[in-house]
């Protein structure tokens, strides 16, 4: 898990029911995330399922993304249990998703892998930001600020998974509490 408590940069804005086929289409599931070069390749295919005509997400020349923050609506990450989805986002260089709500497995995979922070907004932020807007996300304060006018939006507290996120993922947490050997 990225330990940065402040993440600053342009946002990529999506709406409701962003599904795992959009995040990483199934034709790329032949890549194995624990093989380093395939992990990087997964990053280059993040959001490859976006409909034609959308702004490209992985637009940097090295295949990474200029967007460290994704803003979404309700039910972000619905569909498959493919862990390739949060991994592709993390491998592309995204640090956090801020959405109104999450599909269960995507949220869990984000926390368990420590690839990205899955944060929940108090309000519908996909109507308050557009792709490319600069934002500053403060994890400790649970806020996201729209840089253009300084407007601050509050996020929900992380809740029961906070210790897992703080530890850096499922394995680190289980070691910390002695559930598995160090």
């Amino acid at each position: 898990m990225s330990k940065e408590s402040v993440i600053k940069g342009p946002v990529y804005v999506l709406e409701d029911n962003v599904d795992t086929d959009l995040l990483i289409p199934a034709c790329y599931l032949n890549l194995v995330p624990t093989i380093p070069e395939e992990y990087r390749k997964l990053g280059s295919y993040a959001l490859a399922g976006l409909p034609d005509g959308c702004i490209k997400f992985t637009s940097n020349s090295d295949g990474s993304t200029p967007y460290p923050i994704i803003i979404g609506g309700r039910n972000f990450g619905c569909g498959s249990s493919r862990e390739h989805a949060p991994i592709a986002l993390g491998a592309a260089g995204t640090k956090a998703v801020v959405a109104e709500s999450y599909a269960r497995i995507f949220f869990r995979n984000s926390v368990a892998t420590g690839e990205i922070y899955p944060l929940e907004s108090e309000t519908r932020l996909c109507d308050c930001f557009k792709t490319g807007d600069l934002a500053e996300l403060n994890i400790a304060k649970s806020t996201i600020t729209r840089i253009s006018d300084g407007k601050v939006f509050s996020l929900k507290p992380i809740g029961a998974v906070a210790p897992v996120i703080a530890a850096g993922g499922m394995f680190a947490y289980a070691r910390e509490i002695g559930m598995i050997k160090s």
């Binding site: 995330p33 624990t34 249990s81 493919r82 862990e83 497995i105 869990r108 995979n109 368990a112 892998t113 029961a160 897992v164 993922g169 499922m170 394995f171 947490y173 289980a174 559930m179 598995i180």
Partner: peptide, 20 residues
Amino acid sequence: TGIGNTDAGFIMGAGKLLIK
């Protein structure tokens, strides 16, 4: 229930999982 690779890797070694 469906889970991701990390949770599955955990179960593969530990035989259990933290769930809500």
